[in-house]
Computed example of a mutant assay.
Amino acid sequence: MEKETEKEEVSPSYSSTLVLIENIQDNCIPEIINLLVENISKKLADIDFFIERIPEIHSAVITFTCDIDTADFIGKFSSCHRAQGQGVTARSLEESRTVRVEGIPPKTPETMIELYFESARNGGGSVQNVVMLPDENAVLVTFYLPEVLQTLMTRQHAFNNQAVSVYPYYTSIGHCLYGQKGPHTAIPDSEEIPISLHITEFISKDPQKKIIVENAMANIYCDITWPDLGHPTPVIKLSFLNTLSCQLWTLAKVAPTWKNKVHAEFSRLMSMYKVIECDLKPPVWEAIREKVSSSPNLSEPHCQVTLQNGANLVTYKGDLCQHNADVIVISSNKNLKPTGGAALALVKAAGLKLQKDCELIIQKEG
Rank of each mutant, 00 (worst) to 15 (best):
Lys3Arg: 12
Glu4Val: 09
Glu9Ile: 05
Tyr14Leu: 15
Ser15Gly: 15
Ile21Pro: 09
Ile24Cys: 06
Asp26Phe: 00
Asn27Asp: 15
Glu31Thr: 11
Asn34Ile: 15
Val37Gln: 14
Ile40Ser: 12
Lys42Asp: 04
Ile47Met: 12
Ile51Gly: 08
Arg53Lys: 14
Arg53Pro: 00
Ile62Asp: 09
Phe64Asn: 13
Thr65Asp: 05
Ile68Asp: 06
Thr70Leu: 10
Gly75Lys: 12
Ser78Tyr: 04
Arg82Leu: 14
Ala83Asp: 09
Gln84Thr: 12
Val88Lys: 14
Val99Glu: 08
Pro109Phe: 02
Ala120Asn: 01
Gly125Lys: 09
Gln128Pro: 02
Asn129Asp: 12
Leu133Asp: 07
Asp135Lys: 15
Thr142Pro: 03
Leu145Gly: 02
Leu145Ala: 10
Pro146Ile: 02
Pro146Glu: 06
Thr151Pro: 00
Phe159Ile: 15
Cys176Leu: 05
Pro183Leu: 03
Pro183Cys: 11
Ile187Met: 08
Asp189Ala: 13
Pro194Lys: 04
Pro194Glu: 09
Thr200Ser: 07
Ile203His: 03
Gln208Gly: 01
Ile211Thr: 02
Asn215Cys: 04
Thr225Tyr: 00
Pro232Glu: 07
Ser239Lys: 12
Thr250Cys: 06
Val262Thr: 14
Ser267Cys: 05
Lys274Asn: 07
Trp285Leu: 12
Glu286Val: 09
Ser293Gly: 14
Leu298Ala: 05
Thr306Phe: 05
Gly310Ala: 14
Tyr316Arg: 15
Tyr316Glu: 03
Leu320Lys: 04
Asp326Thr: 07
Ile330Cys: 03
Ser332Tyr: 01
Lys337Gln: 12
Pro338Ala: 15
Leu346Asp: 10
Gly351Pro: 11
Gln355Tyr: 11
